[in-house]
């Protein structure tokens, strides 16, 4: 008992200061990309050809990057001869609408807070049932980190619960494999109305690396109504926390 108390003193207070403070992300952190289509030269498609997930497109107004598909690997940055693409350290990449994940020179992701009535119903807690529907467990690693003492989602009433009956919504990861589709839909059905759906990670948003594999559904788009998209491969816990707090109108 005494040893346990001593250890407690030694291990110290470790909860992150975010959101009151900056999140202290590493210098090399790859966050929200910025594009400068004015640098693009006619007919150049080098970034498009380098992208492993088909996240880039050359539209009429210039190059666009769909961060719903992006795995933040920076192959495009390496491929671009003009330096038109850069990944900033901005962790705020979550969005309420799918189209807001298409980053151009003037479009950037943003989250709209839930309506007043829904926020009143939720009070100070948000209980989510996580459903892992394919994928690589990378997003689950980071969702789990959201519960540790550093990110500590429970400070904000954000917790993951065992039963969909106890949940205010589901947080889905993975591209929705054929083998998980039914279980995902049953879990969603089991959550009482009103309910939220959060798509975390490139796979859940668009199928990610597995997009157009016959074994998967290209994410939950079209299967379930999505309230919040959290891009990344996997999203950083701070990115998730930021998106959830904005959804709850706390940021």
């Amino acid at each position: 008992m005494f040893k346990t108390l001593l250890a407690r003193a030694r291990q110290g207070y470790r909860t992150a200061g975010f959101p009151a403070e900056e999140p202290g992300l590493p210098a090399l952190f790859r966050g929200r990309p910025e594009l400068d289509p004015t640098k693009c030269t006619d007919g150049c498609r080098q970034c498009v050809d380098a992208c492993p997930t088909g996240a880039l497109r050359v539209a009429e107004a210039g190059v666009e990057l769909d961060i719903g598909r992006c795995i933040f690997c920076e192959e495009c940055v390496a491929a671009c001869p003009e330096g038109a693409i850069a990944f900033t350290r901005d962790w705020r990449v979550a969005a309420s609408r799918r189209e807001d994940l298409i980053v151009t020179d003037d479009n950037r992701p943003r989250v709209d807070a839930l309506g007043r009535e829904l926020r009143r119903l939720l009070g100070r807690s948000l209980r989510l049932r996580q459903v892992s529907a394919g994928g690589c467990n990378g997003c689950e690693v980071e969702v789990n980190a959201l519960g540790n003492v550093v990110f500590d989602g429970s400070r904000f009433g954000i917790e993951f619960v065992a039963s969909p009956r106890h949940a205010d919504g589901i947080l889905v990861t993975g591209p929705v494999t054929a083998n998980m589709k039914q279980a995902l839909l049953i879990t969603y059905e089991a959550v009482a109305e009103p309910k939220l759906v959060i798509a975390a990670g490139a796979c859940a948003i668009s199928g990610g690396l597995y997009r157009s594999h016959p074994e998967v559904s290209d994410g939950i788009e079209g299967l379930l109504p999505v309230d919040l998209y959290i891009p990344g491969c996997p999203p950083h816990p701070i990115t998730m926390l930021d998106g959830l707090l904005r959804l709850l109108g706390r940021l």
């Binding site: 994928g135 494999t177 597995y210 998967v216």
Partner: peptide
């Protein structure tokens, strides 16, 4: 339940994925 066709997708490579 997590079967997503990784080995099949690697055939024909190496490629950008």
């Amino acid at each position: 339940y997590q079967h997503r066709g990784v080995e099949r997708a690697l055939r024909g490579g190496p490629d950008r994925r």
